[in-house]
């Protein structure tokens, strides 16, 4: 069974370690916060200017001066801090953020990522994504393996305008966990009930399969 979006988020949450400062992108990455173990200490950064981001506020307690990068109302946890956008990207550029999780339209086998523009169709802008992928050393992409037309999003070369070059370290999709290596996409884990062949079919780029590939453990 391929995973749903929550399943992808749940698997990525296992990558979050004690003491990490983590930046979560919009979409599936936002869901990761719901699955992080509660026996470890983690702080979420939102690049519009908060460290120590908490859950959504209770109904009636929302504050226009307290939002995340997706413009959603949020709360600040004890120990949180606010800062301006230059300091926020200073944290990112200066490699003080340990893990970046973001979505993508395409990832190439050399780690290139495209997620900000479809020429002539969709031009929303890159927001903070280009800054994040240019500086972070630990970048996990959360996305579906194929697009709505059924075409692979794990490619030999990105066809869309790039967000960053050679930067993605890991990809988690509804089918698989994949590491980006010098030689291509290395298959690490399969979603429960998904075969290596299913993953190979959905992957356009070079897929490296070494030995038995275990199923993800989502318990």
């Amino acid at each position: 069974m391929a995973l749903d979006k929550n399943g992808i988020a749940q698997r990525i949450a296992q990558e979050v370690q004690d003491g990490y400062y983590v930046n979560l992108g919009i979409g599936i990455p936002t869901l990761v916060a719901n699955f992080v173990r509660d026996d470890i200490n983690v702080e979420f950064q939102s690049e519009n200017g908060i460290l120590g981001m908490g859950p959504f506020p209770f109904d009636g307690e929302e504050d226009a001066d307290l939002i995340n990068a997706g413009k959603q109302t949020i709360t600040a946890l004890p120990g949180a801090s606010f800062f301006d956008s230059a300091m926020s990207f200073g944290m990112i550029r200066g490699k003080h953020v340990d893990l970046t999780i973001l979505g993508a339209m395409e990832v190439a086998e050399n780690g290139d990522i495209a997620n900000w523009k479809i020429p002539g169709k969709m031009v929303k802008g890159m927001g903070g994504a280009m800054d994040l992928v240019a500086s972070a050393e630990n970048i996990i992409v959360a996305m579906m393996h194929t697009n709505r037309a059924g075409e692979s999003k794990l490619l030999k070369r990105c066809s869309l305008p790039l967000t960053g070059v050679g930067c993605v370290t890991k990809i988690v999709t509804e089918l698989a966990v994949i590491e980006v290596t010098d030689k291509g996409f290395k298959l690490l884990e399969r979603a429960p009930g998904v075969s290596v062949e299913d993953i190979r079919k959905a992957t356009e780029g070079t897929l490296i399969v070494e030995g038995d590939i275990p199923e993800m453990n989502l318990n």
Binding site: E47, D84, S85, A86, S88, F89, I92, R93, D112, M126, G127, G128, A129, M130, D131, A134, S135, P161, L162, T163, G164, V165
Partner: peptide
């Protein structure tokens, strides 16, 4: 890029003519 936009404002504020950033390289 958002961080570049912030840096370009801050550079103007603080008298730097320009700044180097890794954001957007190769794009």
């Amino acid at each position: 890029p958002q961080g570049t936009l912030a840096a370009k404002c801050q550079a103007a504020q603080q008298g730097f003519p320009a700044v180097y950033t890794p954001a957007g390289f190769g794009t």
